[in-house]
Design a protein around this nucleic acid. Structure first.
Lengths: 203, 203
DNA sequence: GTCTATATACAGATAGAC
DNA sequence: GTCTATCTGTATATAGAC
């Protein structure tokens, strides 16, 4: 790995652990084993490095989600694969945490990949759910868009609860819960769906 | 409001906006209209002030939740009142955001009120759900504990999605979604509940 | 109680030698 | 490309006068 790469990886880790505000250039350099001059030769400064780090993390996250969501199996199975893949639950979501970082949200360039990643993820899930519905795997009354949002919200909230409790248990619990809900919306063979309202997993 | 109070309020705001890591003593003083010496006379330093601020915020949050959850109405109605109360959605959750703050989570004294608030909230919701079930308002198969966790996760995830999108719409959407789910678990009059698994809102 | 002075370290770079 | 100054400002206090 060359120096720019090590600097980006170092920045990614620190961004995940401490956020943009809690990360100093010095810490980036030390973790990367690079000098001051080296860092400023390859990058214009902290925002530039953060941009490279965030976009790389976002790209990886998309690639992973895409792999799991486009694998074999029913819609529900693929979503289960995605939600249950191995995660560093107690470290939190490397993209979701940036949402709380005032300096990231204040900078349009840094903010954009965060916003786009969430939009993309919701859209992917929506696509999988819509496909499941078309194939007759899922209840025709289920709304793909709001269900997708709810799944992402449960995921992000699961991280928060896990960190608050310093335990992965709440994360596992809510993920199991949302998957159970999805299972409850499997189309009953031979019966066109009943159910009420127009909301998310319930609609 | 006396000087210590103004300092605590100032700290609460900064903690909410910028987090512990992003908040300096100088900023606290300026916002409170207090001098350096004054701040260090009343508080031993940044951690001491943060502790006062966090516990105050936690206390207020509990009082508000308790008021809404113990009001009149069915279990579902009270939870709807709680979830739909006015919130500064785009500012995020003042307690939940601390979960991402490395220096808060590393300090047991600062961490405890965060952990306890989430535990308390889940327990309150669990109580309301259990009561609703006892009264026959909710499906007997619904699990109060995991449903409570899911509700809190959706709430916290809703904040994340809202901040990512810079819009309150995703928050409203997921809150409506989870309330719709709860409505779908209203005990059907005269029919003992069907449904599958043992998970959260679905169980 | 509040103010001003002082202090050490770090943040976040820039400049120029090698 | 990398290293070593150098620089301005802030972080986070402590000390002592008033």
């Amino acid at each position: 790995m060359d120096t720019p790469d090590r600097l980006i990886e170092s920045t990614r880790e620190l961004l995940w652990e401490r956020g943009y505000v809690g990360m100093s250039p010095k810490a980036i350099q030390q973790r990367a084993g690079a000098g001051q001059g080296s860092m400023y030769h390859h990058f214009s400064g902290k925002p530039d490095l953060a941009f490279a780090a965030i976009t790389r993390t976002a790209t990886e996250l998309r690639a992973a989600a895409e792999a799991q969501l486009s694998g074999p199996g029913t819609a529900t199975e693929r979503i289960a694969t995605y939600l249950r893949r191995e995660r560093d639950v107690l470290r939190g979501c490397p993209i979701g945490r940036l949402t709380q970082d005032p300096d990231v949200m204040a900078d349009p360039a840094l903010r954009r990949p965060v916003e786009e990643t969430f939009a993309w993820l919701q859209d992917q899930l929506k696509g999988v759910l819509a496909e499941g519905r078309r194939r007759g795997e899922l209840d025709a009354a289920l709304d793909p868009a709001s269900t997708a949002s709810t799944i992402v919200a449960v995921l992000q909230g699961g991280y928060v609860l896990a960190r608050a409790a310093n335990s992965t248990a709440p994360f596992t619990q809510v993920v199991d819960g949302v998957l159970g809900l999805l299972a409850a919306h499997a189309a009953s063979p031979g019966s066109s769906s009943p159910t009420q309202g127009a909301h998310g997993l319930c609609s």
